[in-house]
Design a binder for these strands. Structure first.
Length: 316
DNA sequence: AACCAGGACACAA
DNA sequence: TTGTGTCATGGT
């Protein structure tokens, strides 16, 4: 173990670290030959798979890394989640191919900003843009000896003070004004990311109680997830897909079902192979077919299409 | 070397 | 409602 670090082991089964960290939900993890290196909650983190779970290396002096366990969602029982998936051939194949694939719970601002930068970009390019952004606008973080310099994800206040030209220099192109405006609105509280957190809690209340929790009369007709999505979509450059990514990957709304080109292709070819289904039909299908953990199922379809299906059919 | 990428948006029809 | 062009950039 490198000096100045401490090590923790999380006992968890059915956790495929590599698949989870490279499945297009987070964009800062890299494999250095011995471990997965990333930044969580502004702290340097090294992760590697062990026979009984996950070994984590963090800076010495950190308290018990509950923040890391929350991020990794190690207490989620994957068997219970998968058991709620529909019992059909496509889902069985996806689950068999991606066993151990998990959902993370990311920082909302980093997740929102990253997915604003994701539109019409390949994952490798998103990673490149985010890396540049962090190097130029983030704060340097203490990394263990022998490791490359590490940088935090720049907070909204920092980016709100940047200009569009500086942002475009990070190769984000037409997404620069979108990111800038998002940063400004979060920085001056026109968009309250904490409020979305309370809506996520409200959504859990709705699902676990019959009374609808503590929803106010004014929002009785609208589910918390819909209210949260509408708030995100107020941002320029944030449509249904990006909003759903943030709802699912940062706030844990399990009904959020991002439909990008891959997932649309998955739904179309796996579930409607005969004739072409309309977007509206696919959207309705996604909302009715995949159960209470639809977003989780979506991640299996996405990763399955990207990693396995193309090779199976030979036309990837 | 065309084609496409975890899209959004304005504008047709 | 669904289709088309535009936006910027780099990988395959």
């Amino acid at each position: 173990m490198a000096p100045g670090t401490r090590s923790d082991v999380f006992d968890v089964r059915d956790y495929d670290l590599a698949a989870t960290l490279t499945s297009g939900q987070a964009f800062r993890w890299r494999w250095d030959g011995a471990a997965w290196i990333g930044i969580v909650a502004g702290k340097w983190v090294g992760l590697r798979q062990t026979p009984t779970g996950i070994a984590a290396t963090i800076a010495a002096g950190e308290s018990s890394p509950q923040w890391l366990m929350d991020y990794l969602q190690v207490r989620v029982n994957l068997d219970q989640v998968v058991a709620t998936f529909p019992d059909d051939e496509p889902m069985r194949r996806a689950v068999a191919a991606c066993r151990g694939l998990r959902l993370l719970q990311q920082d909302p601002w980093e997740c929102l900003a990253s997915f604003i930068l994701s539109s019409t970009k390949q994952i490798v390019q998103i990673r490149q843009i985010v890396t540049l952004l962090c190097e130029r606008f983030g704060d340097e973080i203490a990394a263990p000896q022998g490791h490359p310099r590490a940088f935090s994800f720049p907070d909204p206040e920092r980016l709100a003070g940047a200009n569009e030209t500086e942002l475009r220099a990070c190769k984000m192109g037409f997404r620069a004004p979108y990111l800038l405006e998002a940063a400004r609105r979060v920085a001056d509280a026109r968009l309250d990311l904490e409020k979305l957190q309370t809506l996520a809690s409200d959504q859990l209340q709705v699902l676990t109680s019959r009374t609808g929790g503590r929803r106010s009369a004014a929002s009785l007709t609208e589910a918390p997830v819909d209210e949260a999505r509408a708030m995100l979509m107020q941002l320029p450059g944030v449509g249904r897909k990006i909003a759903d990514c943030v709802l699912l990957f940062a706030y844990g709304f399990q009904s959020a079902f991002p439909i990008d080109v891959w997932v649309e292709n998955a739904l179309q070819t796996l579930y409607f192979p005969k004739r072409r289904a309309s977007r509206k039909r696919l959207r309705h299908f996604s909302e009715t077919h995949f159960g209470p953990n639809a977003g989780f199922a979506q991640q299996y379809l996405f990763h399955y299409m990207r990693t396995v299906f193309g090779r199976e059919t030979g036309k990837g």
